[in-house]
Design a protein around this nucleic acid. Structure first.
Lengths: 257, 257
DNA sequence: AACCGCACTTTCACCTGGTGGAAGTCGAGT
DNA sequence: ACTCGACTTCCACCAGGTGAAAGTGCGGTT
C-alpha cells in the first residue's frame, strides 16, 4: 500500500492550496484548506507556512487565512490582465463618464470570459460580472464578441456542448448562436439582450492587438428599459477602436479577422 | 559535498520563480528565470511546466513566459486588494469625475506603500505610481498617511533608517518627518509637496475599517502649478470618509485614531 | 472545575519522488 | 558546415517531503 495516495508534487500542492480560495470563500481556516485541497492536515500546515512566509497568503485579525498582497503584486504583472487594463483605462473612463453606465473589460481564458475590469457608478444597473469572475462565453456581451473571434476549435466545442441558460432570453440553441456569431463578425458589435438578468442588456465590441487578433472586449451594460440602445453602439465601437489603436493596431502588418 | 546547494523546498522554489518577474521584466525566457531564481535549468524547466499547467504562467506568441490569468484570478480574491477596491471604486470615480486629476488608492505592506488602484485621465499630470508598484512610505501622499497611522515600530524603523530622496523637496530629515506625521494625525490629511517629481503634489486622506484602524489611503495628485490646492482637501477627505463608512466605520465600536 | 470537542502544531522513521549533471535536440547567426 | 545558446530528456542517487500519531490550547458544556 502506497504511503502517498495521490501523486501531486509539492509545488502543485501549494498551487492547489491557492485554488482552495474562491469568490464564495475568500477567507479560510487551515482545516478548511486541508479539506478542500484534499491534503493531510500536517502537510497543509507546512505548505501554508511556506505560502505565508513568501506572502502568497496572509492571516486576518482572527488568524484565518486569505490571499496575500505579495501574490496580488506579482499577479499585477500579468500582461493579459493589468497590462491591458493600464492601456484601456482612460478609454473606459471616457465611456463611463459619457454614459454613467457599467463598463466592463474581459478576456477569454479557455472557454470562458474572465472579467478584468469593471467601472460602475452608483446609479447603474446591478451587474453580476465582478472583476475576477468567470462566465460562459455565450451568455454575455463580452463573451459573445470573444467567442465570435475565437479559434474555430473553441467555437465548435462550445456549440457542441449544452448551453447553460440564465434567463428565458439566454441563447440556448446552437443554430441561433452560430447565426449570432456570424452577425457579430459582420457588424463588429455584439448585443446581449437580457441573457444574464432580465433587467440588463449589454453592448460589446472587440479589442485587437497589433497583430490584429482579438485579445479582449469591452462592453456597456444598460438597463433593458433603456429605449435608445442604438446610440450606444457607436460609443462602444469607438472606445474599442481607440484601445486597439493604443495597442498598436492599424499599422500595416498582418491583419486577419 | 552536498548534492543540493540550497535548501529551498520545491514549493518555495516555485514561488521564487514567480518572484523572478518584475515590472522591469514582465516577460522572461526559461533560462532567464533559472538565472534570476538561481536554479539549475532542468529544475526550473520542471517547475515552470507545473506552473504552466496550473495557469500561474503562460507563454506569449514567441514562447516566452509571463504571469498567467489564472494566477491573476486567484490574486483578485485578496481582500486587502480587490476586495477593498470593489468598495472604494464608486468613490474614486466620483473624485475623478469632479476633478479629472489622478486618483490613487494604496495600502501599506510592511514598510512600503503598495498602490492598489489608480484612475488617471489623459490630461492629468504624469504619475509614476502605477497599480502594483511599491514606494517608500515617507515620499508619497498615500504613504505619509499610512505611516502616520502605522504601528509605532514601523514608524520608528523608518525614522531610524536613511530617508531616500527623489527631489530636493523630499523629506530627508527624521525630525521634519516626525513633525509632518503629527500634523497629519492632527488634520487627517497629508500633503506631499513635490516629493517624487517637481511637477506634482498630492493630497491624501486615511481610510478606516470597521474597527477604526487605518487600512488604506486615497490621494489626488495635482500639478504643482495648481494654485488653489486648498479646494481639493475637503473633496479627498469626504471621499475617504465615504469609503470608510462603506466599510462599516462610524458605528459605535472600538474607535481609536 | 472537570470534561469534551475541535483546530492547530510538532515529531520522526520511512522511502519515494525531486534532483541536477550529463547528454541530446533544435534553430539562428556567421 | 560550424558555433553558440536555449531548451528538453534521461536516470541513478539520496535528501527531504510525507503523514500517522501524539501533543497543545482554547472555548463551550455539564
Amino acid at each position: 500500500m502506497p504511503r502517498r495516495k495521490d501523486d501531486r508534487s509539492p509545488s502543485r500542492r501549494s498551487l492547489d492550496i491557492l485554488d482552495a480560495f474562491s469568490e464564495a470563500q475568500p477567507v479560510l481556516t487551515l482545516s478548511q484548506i486541508a479539506r478542500i485541497s484534499d491534503l493531510p492536515l500536517p502537510t497543509a500546515h507546512r505548505l501554508v507556512a511556506e505560502l505565508l512566509a513568501w506572502g502568497a497568503l496572509e492571516r486576518d485579525d482572527s488568524g484565518a487565512l486569505q490571499i496575500g498582497l505579495h501574490l496580488w503584486e506579482i499577479a499585477a504583472l500579468a500582461p493579459r490582465a493589468l497590462g491591458l487594463r493600464e492601456i484601456a483605462m482612460p478609454f473606459i473612463e471616457d465611456l463611463y463618464e459619457a454614459t454613467h453606465q457599467n463598463v466592463s473589460l474581459g478576456a477569454r481564458d479557455g472557454s470562458e470570459v474572465l472579467y478584468l475590469e469593471r467601472v460602475s457608478g452608483r446609479e447603474a444597473v446591478g451587474i453580476l460580472a465582478k472583476v475576477g469572475s468567470r462566465w460562459p462565453l455565450h451568455a454575455t456581451g463580452v463573451g459573445l464578441v470573444l467567442l465570435a473571434y475565437a479559434p474555430i476549435e473553441i467555437q465548435e466545442r462550445i456549440l457542441a456542448a449544452p448551453l447553460q441558460r440564465f434567463t428565458p432570453k439566454t441563447i440556448g440553441d446552437p443554430g441561433e448562436l452560430r447565426a449570432t456569431l456570424a452577425e457579430i463578425r459582420r457588424t463588429g458589435v455584439a448585443i446581449s439582450d437580457r441573457q444574464i438578468t432580465l433587467d440588463a442588456i449589454s453592448v460589446a465590441a472587440p479589442i485587437h492587438d497589433r497583430t490584429g487578433r482579438v485579445i479582449a472586449a469591452i462592453s456597456l451594460v444598460l438597463p433593458s428599459a433603456e429605449t435608445s440602445q442604438g446610440q450606444y453602439v457607436p460609443l462602444v465601437r469607438t472606445s474599442a477602436r481607440g484601445i486597439s489603436r493604443a495597442l498598436g493596431w492599424g499599422f500595416p502588418s498582418s491583419n486577419r479577422s
